[in-house]
């Protein structure tokens, strides 16, 4: 039962990673791509880690896996801000609609 729930979470996590990557390819500019990566991939990571934690050998190992999530979240949030901030400083204008394509 727990094995099944763990596998389900792993599949859901893989789905969000897939969606985030599709967003990275399909979204029009650097800002919108950052939205896709930061949000979808973090949810994917959370699901994958929760799935692995359910199948871990010990409580400590499970907690160690879950500890990765907030650390990766903090890093990802800071990196998205850094990239968006730099893009704006370089004068990259946000995509504004269908006028170009």
């Amino acid at each position: 039962m727990i094995e099944l729930a763990g596998n389900l979470l792993l599949l859901i996590g893989a789905f969000f990673y897939f969606a985030g990557t599709v967003g990275l390819v399909r979204f029009p500019d650097v800002y919108t791509r950052l939205h896709a990566l930061a949000k979808a991939d973090n949810l994917g990571l959370g699901c994958v880690l929760a799935g692995l934690a359910l199948q871990a050998d010990s409580l400590a190992a499970a907690l160690k896996l879950l500890l990765i999530w907030p650390l990766a979240l903090a890093a990802s949030a800071a990196v998205s801000y850094a990239i968006a901030n730099r893009a704006q400083a370089l004068g990259v204008r946000p995509w504004q609609g269908e006028e170009r394509s």
């Binding site: 789905f15 969000f16 969606a19 985030g20 599709v22 967003g23 399909r26 979204f27 939205h35 896709a36 949000k39 979808a40 973090n42 949810l43 994917g44 959370g46 979240l73």
Partner: peptide, 12 residues
């Protein structure tokens, strides 16, 4: 953050 992930995945 769950809502955010689901929303952006749906948009993508």
């Amino acid at each position: 953050s769950l809502r955010g992930g689901v929303q952006v995945a749906a948009m993508a």
